[in-house]
């Protein structure tokens, strides 16, 4: 499967995700600059990486969400192309309107940088088919603005539609209903604050993240 990684000024997990995608797919991802107007034609996944795009000026992910390449990402996501946003990428996807709600400053105001326990809430999405529902996994988080907010009505709808993909199994940042990762209505867009791309090799301290990419690759090529 061919993949693309979007690179904004200030992205800093673009190489991590590129290494992870290459390890799992065997193909080097295409790195796509934020100023480009189009995505490569034949990709099966677009990753929006972590970092501090545009210095996170105004709001985290706000300026990146209005960059030329994001118009193409929004358009292709609408046609069903899988899009994965991690950390700052999740913030970009909410700001771009691909996912509901917003990511606010962590409740305790601290930048949280550690491994956290997560529960996989659904295994029936393209992104989580490598896991069992209810399974406990461990991914690192590293963020200041991961406190997910949506109004109660939206939260109820998201829960009802099975769109919570990952939930924190411990207190991390004050996220509503402990939401750590969220799917769009069609299930082809996932945004998550934790970093699966940093759990690919045993040397990373575990391989829980690798199964996300393996499951995704199988689901996309099936």
């Amino acid at each position: 499967m061919k993949t693309a990684v979007i690179v904004f000024p200030g992205s800093n997990c673009d190489r991590d995700i590129a290494v992870a995608l290459e390890a799992v797919t065997g193909v080097k991802p295409r790195m796509v600059w934020h100023g480009d107007a189009d995505l490569p034609a034949d990709v099966g996944l677009v990753a929006v990486p972590g970092g501090f795009s545009y210095g996170d000026y105004l709001r985290s992910g706000a300026i990146a969400a209005r960059s030329p390449i994001m118009r193409a990402v929004v358009e292709q996501a609408g046609k069903g192309l899988p899009v994965l946003g991690i950390c700052n990428g999740f913030q970009v996807l909410t700001e771009a309107g691909l996912l509901p709600g917003a990511l606010m400053r962590n409740e305790g105001l601290n930048f949280v940088c550690r491994d956290v326990a997560l529960t996989v809430e659904t295994s029936s999405s393209t992104f989580t088919s490598g896991y069992k529902a209810g399974e406990r996994v461990s991914f690192p988080v590293a963020h200041h603005d991961g406190n997910y907010f949506a109004d109660t009505e939206t939260l109820d709808r998201l829960e009802g539609e099975g769109r919570v993909a990952f939930r924190y199994a411990e207190s991390v940042n004050g996220s509503a209903r402990n939401i750590a990762g969220l799917l769009n209505d069609k299930g082809n867009v996932l945004g998550m604050m934790p970093h699966p791309e940093r759990r690919i090799e045993a040397a990373h301290g575990g391989t829980d993240g690798r199964r996300l990419f393996e499951g995704l690759m199988e689901a996309v090529s099936a």
Partner: peptide, 9 residues
Amino acid sequence: RKLLANTVI
């Protein structure tokens, strides 16, 4: 609406 404020929050 399009940039300066995030009207979700």
